[in-house]
Design a binder for these strands. Sequence first.
DNA 1: TTATTTTGTTAGACACGTCTAACTTTATAC
DNA 2: GTATAAAGTTAGACGTGTCTAACAAAATAA
Lengths: 218, 218
Amino acid sequence: MNSYTEENYLKALYTLGNERGEVNVNDLSRKLEIKMPTVTSMMKKLAAKKLVYYESYKPLKLTEKGKREAALIIRKHRLTEMFLVENMGFGWEEVHPIAEQVEHIQSAAFFDKMDQLLGYPKVDPHGSPIPDRNGKVIWKEYQKLSSCKVGETVRLAAVINTSEDFLRFLNSREIHLGLKVKIKAIEQFDGTMKVSYAKRTDETISHVVSERLLVEKA
Amino acid sequence: MNSYTEENYLKALYTLGNERGEVNVNDLSRKLEIKMPTVTSMMKKLAAKKLVYYESYKPLKLTEKGKREAALIIRKHRLTEMFLVENMGFGWEEVHPIAEQVEHIQSAAFFDKMDQLLGYPKVDPHGSPIPDRNGKVIWKEYQKLSSCKVGETVRLAAVINTSEDFLRFLNSREIHLGLKVKIKAIEQFDGTMKVSYAKRTDETISHVVSERLLVEKA
DNA sequence: TTATTTTGTTAGACACGTCTAACTTTATAC
DNA sequence: GTATAAAGTTAGACGTGTCTAACAAAATAA
């Protein structure tokens, strides 16, 4: 079994790997807010457990075993987030810090029960895919809203940034997953979009925001 | 804030104190399965934090602060057990090891939400009282079934032993909280009771079992 | 292509929570 | 009321995960 700490390194390694491809000691150090020498020594430890390929001065890489174990932690995290939202009435902006703790609970029955009560969801409240019991993830290919064209109508499928501030901002604009958005105009200069959705017929979405919204054809 | 480990010591100290009055280093050592010298050093640490009164060779005692903090952990434990049973469909025999982990989660909102969804329960699935937000406990005075007399009809209010084996045994006899039990006869020699309850009109309850069942007048 | 900056490693320290071995105090038994 | 047993403490070690200081390698800029 892996320790609480080891689990956090695996998870960080996994998510950084998905975001950027290559992961360096420095990236991991910043993400976990843990100094580099500590990261280096943990990498050696995880390498000894065959969870990470580690060679001095080379980028870090999870082994298949490491990927699988990381995905299973993320599975627990995302099931928890979904449960908190769907079965406990939390907002999508509140669940991350709680799930961050719950994900370390060792009890297959606990998470299986959540899964069952939720009806075996495929995604979490932010649209991120929930890995299956074997750690396999089906990542649907979405488009950034920013890459869409005038006249298109799209459905919001996922958000990239899941910080509380960003989610609160979306709440304040009544933007939520599943929302149908019509693109009315795009300002060439800065990428600002004029859109309409629900009862809001004259909204503006900045490029910074449209870069963080993943959509599919409605 | 107290560490995970410190929380476990506080909780053990609290429950042992309720069960036996005086708590020795040795008791705590056995309960936690941690060697005595380790317990001694943790007691000094908790004493420094004003959570425990500690003097060499004297019985251990929680301070008011220590009691309060312990009760708040137990609150989280019991709310969790109740939530697992009432809102997630677990059996009362399954919830202890999960609650043992969940109780350490730091999130007032998480437990407040459980409390609210459960309708502010006063007891957990084993009939133990749930401390309030201030760590105050209202302990209702129940009687052991073993101390009841022939002819009495009582309602099962709580169980003393909450081991999985004992609870499974009760399940197999369809004995659950709230059950109305009529005492038909008591064998003087060994205290075995003849009882009837629900559709079971001719059941036997050994003294070992009736000592562990707490009842109130029906 | 050398100098400088950034990244990464090694070495050694430290806090936490655990242990064993040895010793002391208190309780129990005869 | 001493001898033995049980309980408790002290001392010193160890594993985990963290740090800082110093050095080494790789990347970047001049």
